[in-house]
Design a protein around this nucleic acid. Structure first.
Lengths: 229, 229
DNA sequence: TAGGCGCTGACATAGGGTTGTCATTAGCGC
DNA sequence: GCGCTAATGACAACCCTATGTCAGCGCCTA
């Protein structure tokens, strides 16, 4: 990769997160730490107000340096490609939002790029197993509930097709065994439960905050799953 | 003077004035007009929204991705979610470009949104079969070759691990049986062939246009595939 | 139809830019 | 002092990039 591409990339990376560690940059661009230092220095010399916080990383001190930037063809291509997998691995709600984002992207591309994009689209095909179709549409709501830490009420159908109502505190979403699962603290059972999204019949998202103050990280729960799915 | 210094310099110049003519830039940095054009192009390729007004000069187009027009949380969430599937269903090249696109999106989000996004990221996990790891990195190149209709040379390894060189005209990419396949007209065999991307050892992309004028659409080829993969 | 303008393509060549490695320093907490 | 992390110096090798020149193209206007 070009040095210039990298410098602009790092600049955007710095703007996109609060802190960015030198190692992260090195990994992302496949370069040595030494080169990261050089790049950081170069950016500093261009007048970009960079600073460093021990054990956190680099950050941009104030204001935007770069104007909001548009996407290049490669990036647009990548976004387009992944839209194809959406139907299989996400749900309608995500599809809606993804498509709307992608439309914004397309709308700012030049005509020539748009044409390329459409051609490309016709030349890429997918054939995915039928069983992967997810026709629920809760992913988006759940994403919001998780980041807002709000209690949600769900109607859940168990193996025996019995439906029960639960108030739960969502701590994460895990995709395993080719299905989405909601991991949440169940008020009824007073323990963490694993709800398969396919079996959720309905969701209501309250505005009420979590009652339980401390929750384990989802990564902990992950460890309890059987491996090799 | 360094090219990097100059590019950032031009960027600041453009940000500081309404219009800047190519000649002014050429004079200021003591370079030829030709080089100015190249620099302008380079900035454009970084996604900086440049435009030109006859008899006035270049300027930065405001408002493309300014926050009001920008992405909302739901859209950002959706983009984030799909990044997770990349490693499994695309390859390194696509991952790179997707990540860089996502960074651009993140960089225009407000701090509060950025925080939410990072929290969310920690609460979503994936467990996918090992066999889905794609460690080739040709998808991007192939996308470009397909839309540019350029002949490519590939080193391909067949079932018996014999390596052969082929000149091919790529007509499409198909993902089936959980693998990427390049569909291309093979100059050697004079017919359409199906190259599994995992078995491609190397790719060189020439600048030479297709020799065969008419190609069948990929969708035709699709029909010949066994169903229900 | 000619001419000007903005821009792109092609090319060759010099010249320096870029990068990793290894060693070293500075600062900090214990 | 010691270990740790962040950062800087020195260096060599190598690649390849940056650049000017010249020709050509599309577009507009007169």
């Amino acid at each position: 990769m070009n040095r210039i591409d990298r410098l602009f990339g790092i600049l955007i990376l710095l703007q996109s997160k609060k802190y960015t560690s030198a190692e992260r940059i090195a990994e992302q661009y496949g370069i040595s730490i030494r080169t990261v230092y050089r790049d950081i220095k170069a950016l500093g010399e261009q007048g970009i107000p960079l600073s460093f916080e021990p054990s956190k990383g680099y950050f941009i001190v104030q204001g935007y340096f770069l104007p909001p930037v548009s996407f290049n063809s490669d990036e647009a291509n990548a976004l387009l490609l992944m839209e194809r997998f959406l139907a299989a691995f996400a749900d309608k709600s995500i599809l809606t939002h993804y498509t709307s984002a992608l439309n914004k992207v397309k709308s700012v591309l030049k005509t020539a790029q748009k044409d390329k994009l459409e051609t490309l689209n016709e030349h890429i095909k997918l054939q995915l197993p039928e069983r992967l179709k997810n026709d629920f549409e809760y992913l988006s709501v759940l994403q919001n509930a998780i980041s807002a830490k709000c209690i949600i009420e769900i109607d859940y159908k168990n193996n025996k097709a019995e439906v029960s109502k639960r108030d739960v505190e969502a701590i994460g979403l895990i995709f395993y065994a080719f299905n989405w699962h909601l991991i949440a603290w169940c008020h009824l059972r007073k323990e963490y439960r694993d709800f398969k999204l396919n079996n959720i019949i309905n969701i209501r998202c309250t505005e009420i905050a979590f009652r339980k103050t401390e929750h384990m990280p989802v990564s902990e729960y992950m460890k309890m799953l059987p491996v090799n799915f």
